[in-house]
Simulated scan of single mutants.
Amino acid sequence: MSWLNNVRNALPFTARKQQPEENLWHKCKGCGQMVFTKELEENLSVCPRCDHHERIGPKARFDQILDPGSRADLPAPKVPEDPLKFRDSKKYADRIKAARGSTHEPDALLNARGTIEGRRVVMGVQDFAFMGGSMGLAVGEAFVAGVEAAIADRCPYLIFTAAGGARMQEGILSLMQMPRSTVAIQMLHDAGLPYIVVLTDPTTGGVTASYAMLGDIQIAEPGALIGFAGQRVIESTIREKLPEGFQRAEYLLDHGMLDMVVHRKELRARLAQVIGYLCGERRAA
């Protein structure tokens, strides 16, 4: 077969298969149906059939939330990239290089200045595609930098979380980002500025145990997985069957852990409303 393929490829008149530059169809992770990619993108990456909210990256998130032309990216902070010289099945440095190559991002948390319906904000977005959105030195430093930028601009800090937890390749240095982010949030409060969290699918582990659940307002997208430990781990620990939909946004809303669950189509307007309320527009009126 290999000889035949070599001959066929060498023939000038043999038509060769061309790979499409982009995939025209997307399989919905909610209903399993094939959706036209352009239709999905026009619907803000929400399935038009079952309303499943697909995971999206920072670029799409900034484009959806910030006013056109208002975005100004904050530079990524410089941190030691492999402080523990960690290696499992491959070098940590190689994992970071691969993640950067696939996402074209410096790390799992990006910040930008901008406006939402004219209201100034510093906005951070975690990308689950970058090593599961895991929290390491770079994420912790970016979070602190975002808070400091918000304090300098006298505006709220808004973050979209999406993470599998702490980055194991950085060990205790990763876990140290939990108290660091907590202190940064207190700095924001001391300055009298709001801290708003939008939890997206999935937000778990050390991120949930720190800055993801410390917002003045806790918002989530429909169906988002939110929790600390996995459901199977909890069930094996307490030896009980957990309720249906446990750790989903709607369940957490019903049990008081969230303030609201907002559809992606309504999220920009709702955030503008919340920022206006927290920043004193209601008092001024």
Rank of each mutant, 00 (worst) to 15 (best):
W3L: 15
N5G: 09
N5D: 10
N6W: 08
A10R: 03
F13Y: 08
A15P: 00
Q18K: 13
E22S: 11
N23C: 09
H26F: 13
C31K: 02
C31I: 06
E39F: 01
E42A: 10
V46H: 03
P48E: 03
P48G: 09
P48W: 07
H52I: 00
R55Q: 14
P58C: 10
K59W: 06
D63W: 01
I65H: 04
I65M: 13
L66C: 05
D67C: 11
A72V: 15
L74F: 08
P75V: 04
P75R: 02
P80G: 07
E81R: 12
E81T: 09
E81H: 02
D88C: 00
A93M: 10
D94I: 04
K97V: 06
A99Y: 05
A99C: 04
R100E: 14
R100I: 05
R100G: 12
T103S: 09
E105V: 06
P106H: 06
D107T: 07
A108W: 01
L109R: 04
G114E: 02
R119K: 06
R120A: 15
F130V: 03
S134A: 13
L137C: 02
G146S: 05
G146N: 04
A150E: 07
R154N: 12
L158G: 07
A162G: 06
A163I: 00
A166W: 02
Q169I: 00
L173C: 05
M178F: 00
M178S: 13
Q186G: 07
H189Y: 01
D190F: 07
P194M: 00
Y195N: 14
V197S: 08
G206S: 12
T208S: 11
S210E: 09
G215L: 07
I226F: 08
F228Y: 14
G230E: 10
Q231V: 14
Q231G: 09
I238V: 15
G245V: 11
A249N: 10
L252V: 04
D254Y: 03
D254N: 14
G256I: 08
M257D: 09
D259K: 10
V262I: 15
A269W: 07
V274C: 05
I275G: 07
R282Y: 12
R283Q: 02
